[in-house]
Computed example of a mutant assay.
Amino acid sequence: MSALLPLPRLPLTALAVAALLGAAAGVWPGAGIASAQGTAPTTQPSRLPTAPAQSRGTAEQASVDGVVEAVRQTVLAAQVPGAVVALQVKAGDRVKAGQLLLRLDARAAEQTAAAGAAQVRAARAAQDAATREFERQKQLFDKAYISQAALDRAEAQYKTAQAEAAAQLASAGAARTQSDFYLVRAPYDGVIAEVGVVLGDMAMPGKPLVTVYDPTALRVSAAVPQTLAAKLPADAKVQAELAGAAARITPVRTQLLPTVDPATHSQTLRLDLPPGTTAVPGQFARAWLPVAGSGDARVLVPAQAVVRRAELTAVYVAGADGKPLLRQVRLGRTEGAQVEVLSGLTAGEQVVLDPQAAARIR
């Protein structure tokens, strides 16, 4: 029986120790590392800053869309046919009352007016001759050199010449007036809104040539539904809001037309703007009506919580498990750092103030 030789003592490295401990525990080295690499760590939703959607009481104002109109806006048209031979204004020019805007070819009318003036001069010469003859006949009659019949004939000739002179004068005046129709002038101080012709165009009676409006007299015209018009108080303090304006405008006069449009079932509301208001006809506007109890409570959220992606407008709402949920909303007006939510959110819900951080959480 041979004796057992003792095994040499080898130094235990850290890997060997780990292998021995893992064998005792039933786990081999590398198993835990492979497991960690094969399974993604679960990210727990961190606590994101949130704010509640606030309720701003009952909405006591209703808004309707409108448009800026000129109280005085005139479309100038030709009264006689003729070619446009002079065009002295363009769109956007400021003009004075009586200023010449364009001129039509009036050569035929000018010749007619000249002929009328010549006929007036001839009629006046005949009237002067008849007047002198009548005076001589009167002197002869006073000396009993002529009969009453001769005097009557001289008086008749005098009155005939006088009537013919008056007729020729009226005819010449009509010819001059006709020639003035070939000149288109500004009816009042204003701004040229549109020029509908160019040099050489043929103007016909009733054809629009130039549109001019008075910039000192503007108003907002809005179509108010009958349901809102019925709730308007008699002394309603209506306000106007212009596109791009920082503040609302209090009109100097408010008028609700009594007629109702049968197609839209709405009434026209006119708000006269104060003089000096910077606006142009056709500009978008909004009329704010103080209608008590016109709607539900308004919901406001911080503007920084709104997410805009292409055509999507949404906010992240904190769910029951703390995870943010993207919810589409429809927005209204912006009031300072807050924006009104018309639909998609109720008051009291928590919205995430950092949408970018919420988007990274799955």
Rank of each mutant, 00 (worst) to 15 (best):
A129L: 14
G206M: 10
A347Y: 07
Q79M: 08
L218S: 06
P49Q: 07
V71K: 04
A19P: 00
V75A: 10
D272Y: 09
A36D: 07
P275D: 06
V280L: 09
A34L: 07
D321L: 04
A240V: 15
S46C: 05
S179D: 04
D201W: 06
R253A: 14
Q127M: 11
R253H: 09
R9G: 05
A193V: 06
V198D: 06
A245G: 10
Q61L: 08
R219E: 11
A154F: 04
R132T: 09
L20K: 05
G344L: 02
Q88H: 13
A18Y: 01
G92R: 07
A303I: 10
A166T: 14
L257C: 01
M202Y: 13
V210W: 00
S221A: 15
A172K: 11
A320C: 02
K207D: 04
A97R: 15
Y213Q: 12
D296Y: 08
V299H: 03
Q226C: 03
R308Y: 03
A97D: 03
P324H: 11
S46V: 13
P274V: 14
V27I: 10
E133W: 05
E110Q: 15
F181S: 02
Q44E: 08
P41L: 12
D201Y: 06
G30S: 10
A150P: 00
P262S: 11
L102D: 06
A31W: 02
G336W: 03
Y188P: 01
P251H: 08
Q328V: 08
D354F: 05
A234H: 07
A109D: 11
L87R: 14
A118E: 14
G66E: 02
D128G: 00
Q178A: 15
A40Y: 02
A78V: 12
L87A: 08
V238P: 03
P29V: 04
L232H: 11
A86R: 15
R47I: 12
Q73E: 14
A186K: 11
A97H: 08
S221T: 15
Q338D: 12
L102Y: 06
A175T: 11
V84M: 01
L331R: 09
V291H: 01
K159V: 01
G82S: 06
A175E: 05
G336F: 03
G173K: 14
V71P: 00
P262D: 05
V27A: 01
A31Q: 13
R219C: 02
Q338H: 10
G276V: 13
K159T: 03
Y158L: 09
E340V: 11
V315F: 00
D261Q: 05
V120I: 00
A347R: 12
Q338F: 09
G244F: 05
Q88E: 12
